[in-house]
């Protein structure tokens, strides 16, 4: 296999809300084809980091560099940023489907905005994306009429609407039963392999992050820094940091300091 191409390079990223520091000096690289896990305890800023990566929040310091651009994402002019953002797909924690549109319309909206496809083609594509997440036949349903797990899958279908290079997932398996969550993991792997997409996932579901993760960062809310990075399985085997081990073993190996 050839040397990995860096897809996202984050260097010295500091995140803060006003004077409240969330995380500082984060530096890591997400390679093409990675399933990159952002992990850490609740409230340590995982979702905030994701928001910085997708361009919803401006970093206090540091840069986020995407493959193919010369300057960091936030150093670009807004009109340069837009084509970069168009290559992203984001699955929000609770789906964030537009409630006044049907599922098919939710998927069709980005297609209608950014492609010149005919209405019939867009309809076919929307049906395809829904079929890929196992929701065929639900085209005409409104988000309020389907269950939470279905909303999540529909959200994934919308995230995939424009065939993105990079998919961002915010807690994909939260609120799903173990089997659905396992199926979603399989789907993520399948999408990575067949579409060649790069995937960034925020999660603290241990089963899921061991199953799919090929690289990761571990955020520590106390020191407000990243304290580990690498493949989650390897971290479990090799890390000597009690905080990381405690997290990865649910504090059951007795290594965690109370």
């Amino acid at each position: 296999m050839s040397a990995p191409t860096p897809k996202i390079t984050v260097s010295n990223l500091t995140m803060a809300f006003g004077s409240y520091l969330v995380m500082q000096e984060l530096s890591f690289t997400v390679n093409r084809g990675d399933i990159f896990i952002i992990m850490g305890g609740s409230g340590c800023g995982k979702s905030t980091l994701l928001r910085h990566l997708v361009g919803l929040q401006r970093p206090t310091a540091g840069t986020v560099l995407y493959e193919g651009s010369r300057t960091g994402f936030w150093e670009m002019a807004p009109e340069e940023r837009e084509p970069v953002m168009r290559r992203f797909g984001m699955l929000f924690q609770s789906g964030a489907l537009w409630s006044s549109l049907t599922l098919a319309e939710n998927i069709a909206l980005p297609l209608r905005e950014y492609t010149r496809l005919s209405a019939a083609d867009i309809r076919d594509l929307a049906s395809l994306k829904l079929a890929l997440v196992g929701l065929s036949g639900f085209e005409e349903y409104y988000p309020s009429e389907i269950s939470g797990g279905m909303k999540k899958r529909a959200g994934l279908a919308r995230a995939m609407a424009l065939d993105p290079d990079i998919l961002f997932f915010d807690e994909p398996s939260a609120g799903l039963d173990p089997i659905s969550s396992r199926l979603l993991d399989d789907l993520i792997l399948e999408l990575r392999d067949s579409l060649g997409a790069t995937i960034v996932v925020v999660t603290h579901e241990l089963a899921s992050l061991f199953a799919i993760g090929s690289n990761s960062v571990f955020l520590d809310p106390v020191s407000k820094r990243m304290i580990a990075s690498g493949c989650p399985k390897q971290l479990l085997a090799e890390s000597e940091d009690p905080r990381v081990l405690g997290f990865l073993t649910r504090g059951e190996d007795g290594l965690t300091t109370p």
Binding site: L132, G137, D193, S194
Partner: peptide
């Protein structure tokens, strides 16, 4: 990849 996605798209029958 195309073959796998085609299988996936028809894996779950329409309810």
């Amino acid at each position: 990849g195309v073959r796998r996605l085609l299988t996936l798209a028809t894996a779950i029958p329409e309810r």
